[in-house]
Design a protein around this nucleic acid. Structure first.
Lengths: 209, 209
DNA sequence: TGAGCTATCTTAGCGTCGTTCAGATAACAA
DNA sequence: TTGTTATCTGAACGACGCTAAGATAGCTCA
């Protein structure tokens, strides 16, 4: 029941309604879940009429795209942080994987919106290879750091893709009840993630040659 | 614009409306996509009033659960077939993975409903370890066939989980535009799937000891 | 200052949706 | 034949996405 950004700087009519709507959507998303997110509810949360958002977004999908965009930025940051903090490039691969899944677990609703919009567009929204700041490129470069041959482009892309798919799959299923006993046995969710990645070829590049 | 099951055997009021609704939903799902699937549209397709489905399903979610259940049965069958046709147990691991992703690509809407309902329930709907016919158990047993130690239960579960997560991730991203050039370079989508799985630890169990 | 312009926001409304409820209908049991 | 019960319909409610017409208020430039 808070009035969100409504009480802040208000240069003219509402202030930066676009910003306020994205924030309101993110807030509602994590609070109530993706199914409860209606454009009307976002407008209510931001304190404007149901029609107001249409002056800033073509439709509901475009608002969700904006929310997803913020999510990708956050995810890129989490991955960069994990990579920077890892002791060795080889460790970095595992740490990036864990950071990825942890991000998805901590922001489940936004993570879901990120992939819902990606599915609709049938593409990663940050461009992947086209954008050197993208999370994909960070993972790819970490493979190079860990010893992959940067000239074998196709091998490199396949390894990066394989790693990404594993992390996404784990992120989507991490909260399934069937895995609870494994988390308990291994001493926590993060340990479970680590153990799964250990069974995977994230490290295969190291044994390649 | 076909009248679906409406013209078949009709023991009393409508006939087997429950069956007709599930079929109508599956048909609409693949034809129009998940976002276009409304309970009212399903009722229309089946030729009944919007309120009729409520005598067979508690709500829309329960109908989707039934559709998802049929999907899991189909997927289990596809996996069993791939396992049976593989030349060696080691091949079977790769073939199951390819069959899994191909199923998802051929039935994208139903596949999505399968995981949407799974997410809502935070669990695999077929019970996994609890159900020896489940796809999960088939994969796990294939690891045993391929040389995994059946007594190291935890290792076995982690490997199976890792493989499953990879396949799901690939299934969700297989149609992203960014992968088109890899599919072209490798000579088709199936070859792309095979190449990704090759980079993964699906085979790790073979090199374990 | 003030007139006009334009972006912004509101009010009202359309069609659709999920869901409920009272009542009609038809198979079946006695 | 009468009653019981499962099944289906019609009408309705509130919420939704979205649109159109009009009100409002900040900005520009005389």
């Amino acid at each position: 029941m808070r009035d969100s950004q409504a009480a802040e700087a208000r240069p003219y009519h509402h202030g930066d309604l676009r910003r306020a709507l994205i924030d309101a959507a993110s807030r509602l998303l994590e609070a109530e879940g993706p199914s409860a997110l209606s454009l009307r509810a976002v407008a209510r949360e931001a304190g404007v009429s149901p029609a107001a958002p249409y002056h800033h977004f073509k439709d509901k999908g475009e608002l969700l795209e904006a929310v997803a965009g913020e999510g990708w930025t956050l995810l890129d940051g989490a991955i960069a942080k994990a990579r920077a903090e890892a002791a060795t490039p080889a460790d970095a691969l595992d740490e990036i994987g864990v950071a990825y899944v942890c991000f998805a677990r901590e922001n489940p609703a936004i993570y879901r919106v990120m992939y819902d919009t990606a599915r609709d567009k049938e593409a990663f929204p940050d461009g992947m290879e086209g954008n050197e700041d993208s999370a994909y490129c960070k993972v790819r470069d970490t493979f190079i750091d860990a010893g992959a041959n940067p000239n074998e482009v196709q091998e490199l892309e396949l390894s990066t893709t394989a790693a990404w798919c594993s992390a996404h799959g784990l992120a989507e299923m991490a909260n399934f009840k069937q895995f609870q006993h494994l988390k308990d046995a291994l001493g926590g969710e993060t340990a479970f993630f680590r153990a799964v990645f250990k069974r995977l070829g994230l490290a295969a590049i190291r044994a390649q040659d």
